[in-house]
Every structure is written in C-alpha cells, then in structure tokens.
C-alpha cells in the first residue's frame, strides 16, 4: 500500500514550478511563489500576489507583532506556514467610510470592546470582521495570505516577484 505524502510549502522549504511557453508571454500568467515572496519581504508587508480588478490576495510575512489595522469590509487571512495569533477589538467608532477599500493602519491603540482571540496554524483560515480592529503576532517567522481589496498599503512589485 502506497503511503501518500502531501507536499505543502514553507519559508524554509518550497519548490517553484514554472511556465513552458509555446506561443504566449510568461508575464501574462503573473506567476510567483508565496514563500519566495515572503522570504524577501519585511515583516507584515502586504505584497499582492494576485489581483483581479480591485480585489487582491496579499502574501504577508508574519514576524513579531503587527500594527493595529481596521477595514470596512470582511477580510480573510489563511496561514500557510508558522503560527499566528489574532487579537480582535470592536471599534466604538469605526473610522472608515463604508466603501473604503482595503485596510488602514490605526494611529493609536483601538478603543472598544475586546471581541476575542484566534490562534491559527498551517492551513487555518479566519474571519477579520468588517469594522473591527485587528493585530497579528507571530513568535517565529511565518506566512499568511490575505483575501481583501487593494488598499492604501498594498504593495505591488510584480516585476520583482513574477516569472518573465
């Protein structure tokens, strides 16, 4: 009986696939690897690895404690490597217009009721509810991807991260 081994990637260990072009431009496939991107990112940098009109998926290097952020719509982090703790606070006074895209950094500590805490490990996905404040902590370097909308702090460096 074959013992199957499921291959996930990590910061320390990943293999990158590739594109064999027959009649096209490799840039059209916007091909990158999340672990490679996170390996060359600063902690908590929000680097877009996917973009479909206003929507993005950001690859984020989780390391140390992030700033507090808030967003007018739901966002969804998924941890692909390491362990990340999320703290959530219900803001007494949400600061963003209802249609503000993406998250923004809070200048000060959030004011409001504590909503709770979540600990995510590899493969775990969480909800960051609209109009809450959130902060991530990772004791060791890890990686998460964030389903969100292109915001003020989304970084696009496609030429650096994509096959061409």
């Amino acid at each position: 009986m074959t013992k199957y081994v499921t291959k996930f990637g990590s910061l320390d260990s990943y293999e990158k696939g590739g594109i064999e072009i027959i009649n096209d431009d490799p840039k059209h496939y916007v091909f990158s690897n999340i672990f490679e991107v996170a390996n060359s990112s600063k902690p908590w940098e929000k680097v877009a690895v996917g973009k479909n009109m206003e929507y993005v998926i950001e690859a984020i290097r989780a390391q140390g404690t992030s700033e507090w952020r808030t967003c007018a719509h739901d966002e969804f982090p998924t941890v692909l490597d390491g362990e990340v703790t999320i703290e959530l606070v219900k803001l007494d006074k949400p600061t963003l217009a209802a249609d503000h895209p993406g998250s923004v950094k809070l200048k000060d500590e959030p004011v409001g009721k504590k909503m709770g805490r979540i600990v995510l490990r590899r493969g775990h996905q969480a909800l960051l509810p609209a109009n809450s404040a959130y902060r991530f902590t990772a004791k060791k370097p890890g990686v998460l991807i964030l389903q969100t909308i292109h915001g003020d702090d989304t970084i696009e460096r496609w030429a650096d991260i994509c096959l061409s």
């Binding site: 013992k3 504590k114 996905q125």
Partner: peptide, 28 residues
C-alpha cells in the same frame, strides 16, 4: 491521499457576545 494532513482546528476564544464574528476553521 490526504491521510497525513493534520486535522487540528484553530483555537478560537470569542468574548461573550462575539461568538458569531470571531471564527476560524482549518481549510486544509
């Protein structure tokens, strides 16, 4: 083919009243 995939679920600690908004699951 996924017998080796860890089955642990995230730790979720909602404060009273926020059970519907503090949520997570293991996608894998």
């Amino acid at each position: 083919m996924f017998a080796d995939v860890p089955q642990d679920e995230p730790e979720v600690y909602p404060e009273p009243g926020f059970e519907k908004d503090v949520a997570a699951f293991s996608l894998f």
